[in-house]
Design a protein around this nucleic acid. Sequence first.
RNA 1: GGGGAGAUACCCAAGCGGCCAACGGGGGCAGACUGUAAAUCUGCUGCUUCACAGCUUCGUAGGUUCGAAUCCUGCUCUCCCCA
Length: 441
Amino acid sequence: MAKDFLHELRWRGLLHEATPGVEELLARGPVKGYIGFDPTADSLHVGNLVQIMLLTHFQRCGHIPIALVGGATGMVGDPSGKKSERQLQDEDSLRHNVACIRAQLARFIDLDGGGAMLVNNHDWFKDIGFLAFIRDVGKHITVNYMMAKDSVKNRLETGISFTEFSYQLVQGYDFVHLHRTLGVRLQMGGSDQWGNITTGTELIRRMDGGEAHAITSPLLTKADGTKFGKSEGGNIWLDARRTSPYRFYQFWLNTSDADAERAVRIFTTWEQAEVEARIAEHAKAPHLRTLQKALAEDITRRLHGEEEVREAVRASEFLFKPWTVDQLRAYPLKFWQTLEECIPGYTTVADPSEVKEGELQGVSLKQIEDSISVQKLLARTGFLASFSEARRAIREGSIAVNGVKVTDEQQLLGGQDLIGGKYLLLQRGKKSYFLVKVGEV
RNA sequence: GGGGAGAUACCCAAGCGGCCAACGGGGGCAGACUGUAAAUCUGCUGCUUCACAGCUUCGUAGGUUCGAAUCCUGCUCUCCCCA
């Protein structure tokens, strides 16, 4: 017995708006529904995760998810939520972005079975000429209708190009095309997409006399009102090269209590009873952070896989447990190699002559062995931006080397500080770690 | 086309000849308290191995001055009003 998708969305807090009649449509049997993703970068980020979860839950309720990557719409630019005209992308970078996003989506949604698939709207737009488009599609929608959309209205004062104005037609036609060729009856998206989606349903009605539906999810913000998905040091990406699995795990682990409760509803696939049980358990002993841990593990596992989660958890447990230098030295070398992948780092250059005095970048093994000030090391390895910043950080008492707080700006380090002759663990504050590694000599 | 206002650090915004590396707020970072949470309080937030020092920075290019973010001129851009 398939679960009721709308009911699922409601208790998870994922339902914002829906067109009348969706309930009946979904009750009649498996429905094909799609969500579009913007290929503005070669990786999605946690902000896109809500939409990914919509598709995930959709599929788990027995329906057929279709992911659309906007190879064509990405060339136009969606005015929704944007204050100014968007920078256009060239075709090559779009192609690359689309390929990368495809791989990421496949981590969460089965895109190969039972009609589920990934489509690229560039495939059908590339052969449509301008005249054909404005005659066949543009004819059915009035400018008045288009101007009434919030995305357009909000830009009328500051200005909007014809290109972005046309965006809703282009996206709307996607829906028409998918409806015709694949029988797609539903489009989902964030609440800011409502206007674009309903242009699509309207086009389907006028062009083909068909009936199509829309569901949107609420815009997600944190409990303190700030945007969800941005964290210390900017965007959290799904791509491991941009955001290491460790940092991804840490992002979720750092979720506040209030946000964690909402997050487990939205981002996990746990059943309602399990979600409620875990929230209750967490409420009894919030300091144990069981909810954050479970949440972080669950999402990281689905994105990066079992092995990466284990490493992230191990590194986290290690880094946030107090230890002495001796304990640090006792750690197996293999563990340090794991750490290298988790936190940012710097590898010493082989030839000391490559590093010129006065240059900001670069440290060699010889310089460390000859003794180097902490301040210099912080700046030259790129952990901190400048000597001044390094000095300030030390004065603030936020720097530690190998777990020992540095109090003296002039403090020197030497070869004896290298752990296993190879590593130096730098730390700023509690959460920011940096690993200096001795490279090949 | 005519008239007016403005461009200051990540953002907003003071300053209108030396005491200005530039008030204040936001944001960011750190410290204390905690639970790698929230709230609160405190510090830091241009660079230079630190310094009542030097250097770069107040749209841009010049100029006046012992001395300019502050005064003058050209240029670029933004906004407002009248046609």
